[in-house]
Design a protein around this nucleic acid. Structure first.
Length: 257
DNA sequence: ATGACTTTCACGGAAAGA
């Protein structure tokens, strides 16, 4: 079983690359973030042409999340929005059942800077996530929650930790909240498969950052701990950060036995 | 270098990303 997550930075702009991805990897689940598409403009037909159905929450110009799966195993029991979140209109959380997995696609608030209200909102959003995931952990289905967490969990998850002192993404409160999320019974699948590797999922478009591998690991695939023994591999497909009109994020893929 | 790139909305340039 192949699960994937990808911040596409506009599903409209990235549709050719997304269709390419579906054709290349044929994932059983693909979580998308930053779809940046209005509800009515969501490319349902184009995805159906590739054999995929979507459960999505679309906020218009910004954010937006989706869970894709093959039409024959379409997402159901969809929950749009995160209980308790302050700004539901930002469209940052969608949940659905695919097969016997409870799947959530999440795009965590960026936070901008430590002294801004959006940083406080980021921490609150993460608290709401922890509460929701604790609820899901008490359910029958194992959980796959994946997306752009906008947190680099450890210093090795950014190209130069010294540059991030006093900024978002590496601050202690953010990392502590990720600890709390993991403590609901989830594994960071990339670290299960690659305990020692440096693996980035995001590189700024500017200044040749990708070619210099000045990136960050901020996209995560979290998995119920009971599925840990089924992790075969987890890796980043850097080819989708290359070529024609790439996203600034690369997709993260997780194979389960 | 107080930048560098890309997207949306809208038709110039702001806002957002991280």
């Amino acid at each position: 079983m192949l699960l994937a997550t990808w911040n596409v930075n506009s599903l409209t702009a990235r549709l050719p690359r997304v269709l390419e991805f579906l054709g290349t990897h044929a994932p059983d689940v693909l979580c998308l973030q930053e779809t940046k598409v209005g509800e009515a403009a969501f490319p349902t037909e184009a995805l159906a042409g590739a054999g995929y159905a979507a459960a999505h929450l679309s906020g218009g110009r910004w954010a937006g999340v989706a869970v894709l799966s093959p039409i024959g195993a379409a997402p159901f029991d969809v929950v749009r929005g995160l209980p308790g979140e302050a700004r539901a209109e930002e469209a940052r959380w969608v949940e659905a059942t695919v097969g016997d997995l409870r799947v959530a696609s999440v795009y965590v608030t960026n936070g901008r800077a430590l002294d801004t209200p959006t940083y406080e909102e980021k921490l609150t959003f993460l608290d709401s996530m922890r509460a929701r995931l604790a609820t899901l952990a008490s359910g029958d289905l194992p959980v796959f929650v994946a997306g752009d967490f906008n947190i680099a969990y450890e210093d090795r998850d950014v190209w130069d930790p010294a540059l991030f002192v006093g900024t978002t993404h590496t601050s202690r409160p953010e990392r502590e909240r990720l600890d709390a999320i993991l403590a609901t019974g989830l594994l960071d699948a990339f670290r299960v498969a690659e305990p020692d590797a440096t693996g980035f999922t995001y590189w700024d478009y500017r200044a040749g950052m990708f070619h210099k591998n000045m990136g960050m690991r901020i996209d995560l695939a979290l998995l119920s701990a009971r599925l840990g023994p089924r992790v075969v591999r987890c890796g980043i497909d850097r080819d989708f950060r290359k070529g024609l009109k790439p996203s600034d994020h690369a997709p993260l893929l997780l194979e389960l036995a």
